[in-house]
Amino acid sequence: MGASPTPGETANPDASTPGETANPSASPTPGETANPGPSPPAPASDADQPHGYPGQAGAAGLLVYDGNCGFCTATAHWVERRLSGRNRIIPAQQADLEALGLTTEDVARSAWWIGPDGTRADEHLCIGEALRAMSGPWPLLGRLLTLKPISPLARPLYRLVARNRHRIKPRFLHGSRGNR
Rank of each mutant, 00 (worst) to 15 (best):
I114Q: 11
R120W: 00
T119S: 05
R180N: 14
G136H: 02
F71N: 00
P5Q: 15
T6F: 12
W113N: 13
V64M: 06
P43G: 07
P149F: 02
N164L: 01
W78T: 14
L160P: 03
A108I: 12
Q93V: 13
G70N: 15
M1E: 05
P18S: 15
S27Y: 11
T29L: 12
C69E: 06
N12Q: 15
L157R: 01
P40G: 10
L102R: 13
T75F: 09
R132N: 13
I114M: 08
L144W: 10
P13H: 01
Q93D: 05
A11K: 10
G58F: 00
R132L: 11
A34I: 05
P116E: 07
K148I: 12
A34K: 08
R82L: 03
L144V: 07
R177W: 09
W112G: 12
L102M: 06
H174W: 11
D96W: 05
H51E: 08
A15T: 07
F71T: 00
F172M: 11
G52P: 00
W112Y: 11
D106V: 10
G37T: 13
A42S: 10
R132F: 08
M134T: 01
A74F: 01
E129I: 05
P91C: 10
A11T: 11
D96Q: 03
N23P: 03
T21A: 13
L97W: 12
A59F: 02
V161G: 12
A162W: 03
R171S: 15
A162T: 06
L160I: 07
Q94G: 03
L131P: 14
G118W: 07
S176Y: 07
G178K: 08
I90K: 09
D117L: 01
N12A: 14
S39I: 07
R167V: 00
N87D: 11
R159L: 11
P7E: 01
F172D: 06
C126T: 04
L97Y: 03
P54Q: 10
G178T: 03
E80A: 10
C72P: 09
A3H: 15
G101M: 10
L160W: 09
L141Y: 14
E98H: 15
P28L: 08
G85W: 00
L144A: 13
P149C: 11
L140V: 11
A133S: 09
P116T: 03
P50F: 04
L83G: 01
G8N: 09
P137M: 11
I89K: 02
A74L: 02
M134C: 10
G61N: 13
V161C: 06
P137H: 06
L62Y: 01
P152E: 12
T10Q: 12
F71Y: 14
A44Y: 02
E129M: 11
P30I: 05
D122R: 03
S39N: 10
V79R: 09
S110F: 04
E98V: 08
R155K: 13
N35M: 05
P5S: 12
N35Y: 15
G19P: 08
L157E: 03
I90P: 02
G178H: 03
R88V: 02
P156W: 11
P170G: 00
A108E: 07
D48R: 00
